[in-house]
């Protein structure tokens, strides 16, 4: 007997019991998932980041400069002390500052320039014309420094229609993804666990 399949099936049914109403079985499964997920991420973070990037460089390779990020990381734990918690802002400001500095050129390159480049299409097909009109009209819609009146108002209104198509198609795509997951779980329960289907 495969105990793993039985455990997975019982936990799956416990989560689906929420469709009836909130109950202790669902709450238990929900809390197990939270605990296991946190344990998973901590174990993976320690083994893939802290051990190879901090402990091995310091203790095996003798790179003592890595003690500095180690100490800064430990300073984060001062959050738990009422008196010393302001010092935990120092490592936080390093993460925020570096993140902000890195994101400006990254966003400029990966989003703005790349997206604009992809929109500069030859006007030789209906699809290309629609793409150009849609990008421009959606950008006009998000331009709030001018009131949406006159030509800007018309552009913004066209933008709303394209946004509606985007929201509708994204919704449809998400629904289908969720339903395929549901089919997968039902196949698991009826096939792998109970053996009713192949």
């Amino acid at each position: 007997m495969n105990y793993g399949i039985t455990v997975a099936a019982i936990l799956t049914l416990a989560i689906y019991s929420f469709l009836y109403k909130d109950n202790p079985f669902y709450k238990a499964a929900e809390h197990i998932l939270l605990g296991v997920s946190v344990g998973y991420f901590v174990a993976v973070t320690v083994s893939t980041t802290l051990i190879p990037k901090l402990f091995i460089p310091i203790f095996s390779e003798g790179k003592l400069s890595y003690i500095i990020p180690g100490i800064l990381g430990m300073v984060m734990f001062l959050r738990f002390s009422k008196k010393l918690s302001p010092y935990s802002r120092i490592p936080l400001s390093i993460i925020i500052g570096v993140g902000a500095g890195v994101s400006i050129p990254a966003m400029m390159q990966a989003q703005i320039i790349a997206q604009m480049k992809a929109t500069m299409l030859p006007i030789n097909s209906l699809s290309n014309i629609i793409i150009i009109v849609a990008v421009l009209s959606v950008l006009i819609y998000f331009y709030f420094s001018q009131p949406h009146k006159g030509a800007i108002g018309v552009g913004a209104k066209i933008g709303i229609y394209f946004l509606m198509i985007f929201f509708g198609s994204t919704f449809g795509y998400t629904v289908m993804a969720r339903i395929s997951l549901l089919i997968g779980r039902l196949q698991f329960l009826l096939g792998d666990w109970l053996g009713f289907i192949d």
């Binding site: 802290l50 990037k53 990381g73 984060m76 734990f77 936080l92 993460i95």
Partner: peptide, 8 residues
């Protein structure tokens, strides 16, 4: 490294 500590 610091980010990993923040997760902890």
């Amino acid at each position: 490294i610091i980010y990993a500590f923040s997760l902890l």
